[in-house]
Simulated scan of single mutants.
Amino acid sequence: MAAITASPTSQSSPASLPPSVFTLPHTAQLEALYTIIRDRTTSRGDFLFYSDRVIRLLVEEGLNHLPVVPKTVETPVGATYNGVGFEGKICGVSILRAGEAMEAGLREVCRSVRIGKILIQRDEETALPKLFYSKLPEDIAQRYVLLLDPMLATGGSAIKAVEVLKDHGVSEERIIFINLISAPEGLKSFCGKFPALRVITGWIDKGLNEKAYIIPGLGDFGERRYCE
């Protein structure tokens, strides 16, 4: 069988993306990882392993968008190296429950990073996202925040989470939203409301169906992650 190159047919073209949205480079390896985690027959163990690989890539890309300042160090051989260092402190905030799955990937690359949590669920009376619980670092307004949630469908929960962060004094410019798969409809709504906030996503799918499920998607991330 002849080898093929990656052909991200479900991916929106860069020209159609809001300027605040950044995607991972769509290599053949990345598409292979997404093919595995999209497959309904993939075992839970493999889903955990390969989704963690994608999450690690996303966190690394998110860190690329943090500001740096010049920093000079002396190497073990007595030479001087003019490099850079991170400016300011960071923290992670996961949108429960699926967002918790991304915390380990953040901790793997940021030792001792502080992590907050936000629980948002649909209000049965208003059908709107409602805050049920939040626990955030006391000094979060002075930190850069990596907001974690694997899926961006309509954008309702993510919008509510950013509103919670802003209520705690975090400016949009200090928030980077990281997720595995986004729907164009959710990106348009989310970025339209918070144009100064950056989004790092691994893949942009075709859109939402009549039930607001991402198509082709990968199903319910939380269910596949936490349930046998």
Results as ranks from 00 to 15, higher is better:
Gly105Asp: 05
Ala98Ser: 11
Gly88Asn: 08
Ile95Leu: 07
Tyr81Cys: 08
Arg114Val: 03
Thr72Met: 08
Leu66Glu: 07
Gly99Val: 00
Arg111Asp: 08
Val68Tyr: 09
Val77Ala: 05
Asn82Gln: 12
Val113His: 10
Leu119Val: 11
Glu74Thr: 15
Glu103Ser: 04
Gly116Asp: 03
Arg107Asp: 04
Ile120Cys: 03
Thr72Asn: 11
Ile120Glu: 01
Gly92Val: 01
Glu108Arg: 13
Glu87Thr: 06
Ile115Arg: 07
Phe86Val: 02
Thr75Met: 14
Ala104His: 14
Ser94Pro: 05
Glu124Gln: 14
Gly85His: 09
Gly78Gln: 07
Arg122Gln: 12
Asp123Pro: 11
Ala101Met: 03
Val84Ala: 13
Val84Lys: 15
Ser94Ala: 12
Lys89Leu: 03
Val68Cys: 02
Asp123Cys: 13
Met102Gln: 07
Pro76Trp: 13
Thr80His: 09
Lys71Met: 01
Glu124Ala: 13
Ile115Met: 06
Glu108Gly: 06
Pro67Phe: 13
Lys71Ser: 07
Val109Asn: 14
Ile95Trp: 01
Gln121Ser: 14
Glu87Tyr: 07
Ala101Phe: 04
Ile118Ala: 00
Ala79Tyr: 13
Glu125Ala: 14
Gly78Tyr: 12
Leu119Met: 15
Leu66Gln: 12
Thr72Ile: 08
Glu124Met: 13
Ser112Arg: 15
Asp123Ile: 10
Leu66Ala: 09
Thr72Leu: 05
Ile115Pro: 01
Thr126Leu: 04
Ala79Cys: 10
Glu125Tyr: 15
Leu119Ser: 12
Val113Ile: 13
Thr80Pro: 05
Glu87Asp: 11
Arg111Ile: 07
Ala104Lys: 15
Pro67Thr: 06
Gly88Lys: 10
Met102Thr: 06
Leu106Phe: 10
Pro70Leu: 02
Arg107Leu: 13
Ala104Pro: 09
Glu103Leu: 07
Arg114Gln: 11
Val109Pro: 14
Val68Asp: 02
Arg114Phe: 00
Arg122Trp: 12
Val113Gly: 05
Ile115Glu: 00
Arg111Tyr: 11
Tyr81Glu: 05
